[in-house]
Measured scan of single mutants.
Amino acid sequence: GQVHVGDTTYHFPNPEEARKFAEKAAKENNLQVTQHGNTFKVE
């Protein structure tokens, strides 16, 4: 799974890890998570 936060892309071998990371980043920054397959975008 990939997580895009601003201009930075994080790669995770496990989509579940990617999702947890995205949700945590979104919560900390008052942002939203959008999911496209195994790619998550925090914005």
Results as ranks from 00 to 15, higher is better:
Val3Asn: 00
Gly37Glu: 06
Ala25Pro: 01
Val42Glu: 02
Glu28Asp: 11
Gly6Ala: 06
Glu28Pro: 06
Gln32Arg: 14
Ala22Lys: 01
His4Gly: 04
Ala22Pro: 00
Gln2Thr: 15
Leu31Phe: 07
His11Asp: 07
Lys41Asp: 07
Phe40Trp: 11
Phe40Cys: 03
Lys20Ser: 09
Glu28Leu: 12
Ala22Phe: 02
Arg19Asn: 03
His36Ala: 09
Asn38Glu: 05
Gly1His: 12
His11Pro: 03
Thr9Lys: 08
Glu17Ala: 11
His4Leu: 14
Gly6Thr: 04
Gln35Arg: 13
Lys20Arg: 13
Thr8His: 13
Leu31Arg: 05
Phe12Glu: 01
Thr9Gln: 06
Pro13Gln: 11
Gln35Ala: 08
Phe40Ser: 02
Leu31Thr: 08
Asp7Phe: 11
Lys27Ala: 12
His4Tyr: 12
Thr9Phe: 09
Val5Trp: 15
Ala18Thr: 00
Thr39Gly: 05
Gln2Asn: 07
Phe40Lys: 00
His36Asp: 12
Ala22Tyr: 02
Gly37Val: 03
Glu23Val: 10
Thr34Gly: 03
Phe40Asn: 03
Pro13Ser: 13
Arg19Ala: 06
Glu17Gly: 04
His4Trp: 14
Asn30Gln: 08
Pro15Gln: 13
Ala26Asp: 02
Glu23Met: 13
Val5Arg: 04
Ala18Glu: 00
Gln2Tyr: 15
Tyr10Gln: 01
Val42Ser: 03
Glu23Asn: 09
Gln2Pro: 02
Val33Gly: 01
Thr39Arg: 07
Glu16Phe: 09
Gly37Trp: 04
Lys24Asp: 08
Gly37Ala: 05
Ala25Thr: 14
His4Phe: 13
Lys27Asn: 08
Asn38Arg: 05
His11Cys: 14
Gly6Val: 04
Phe12Ile: 01
His36Leu: 12
His36Met: 12
His36Ile: 14
Tyr10Trp: 07
Glu17Cys: 11
Gln2Arg: 13
Ala26Glu: 01
Pro15Cys: 15
Ala22Leu: 02
Ala22His: 00
Asn29Ala: 13
Ala25Arg: 10
Thr9Trp: 14
Glu23Ala: 09
Glu17Val: 07
Gly37Asp: 06
His36Gln: 11
Lys20Asp: 08
Ala26Leu: 02
Lys41Leu: 14
Arg19Tyr: 06
Asn30Gly: 14
Glu17Ile: 07
Asn38Ile: 05
Thr39His: 13
Gly6Gln: 05
Gly6Trp: 10
Asn29Val: 06
Gly1Arg: 04
Glu43Tyr: 13
Gly1Asn: 08
His11Ala: 06
Ala18Val: 00
Gln32Met: 13
Glu43Trp: 14
Phe21Val: 00
Phe21Cys: 03
Lys27Pro: 00
Tyr10Val: 04
Tyr10His: 05
Glu16Pro: 03
Arg19Leu: 07
Phe40Met: 03
Ala18His: 00
Ala22Asn: 01
Glu17Lys: 04
Asp7Ala: 12
Val42Leu: 12
His36Trp: 12
Ala26Gly: 05
Ala22Val: 02
Glu28Met: 11
Thr8Ala: 12
Val33Ile: 11
Glu16Ala: 08
Glu43Leu: 11
Pro15Arg: 12
Glu17Leu: 11
His11Gly: 04
Val3Asp: 00
Thr39Ser: 12
His4Met: 14
Ala25Ser: 08
Ala22Arg: 01
Lys41Asn: 10
Ala22Gly: 01
Gln35Cys: 06
His4Gln: 14
Asn14Asp: 11
Tyr10Met: 04
Ala22Ile: 03
Gln2Gly: 03
Thr39Trp: 07
Ala18Pro: 00
Asn14Met: 04
Glu43Val: 12
Phe12Gln: 02
Gln35Tyr: 07
Thr8Tyr: 13
Phe12Pro: 00
Glu16Lys: 05
Glu17His: 05
Ala18Asn: 00
Leu31Pro: 02
Leu31Ala: 13
Thr9Gly: 01
Lys24Glu: 10
Lys41Ile: 15
Lys20Ala: 14
Glu23Thr: 08
Thr9His: 07
Gly37Ser: 03
Glu17Thr: 08
Val5Phe: 15
His4Glu: 12
Glu43Gly: 14
Glu43Met: 11
Phe12His: 02
Lys27Val: 08
Asp7Lys: 13
Val5Lys: 04
Val5Asn: 03
Asn30Met: 08
Thr39Tyr: 10
Thr9Leu: 12
Gly6Pro: 02
Glu43Ile: 12
Lys41Val: 15
Lys20Met: 12
Glu43Lys: 06
Asn29Leu: 15
Asn29His: 14
His4Ser: 09
Asn29Cys: 15
Val3Thr: 03
Val5Ile: 15
Asn30Phe: 08
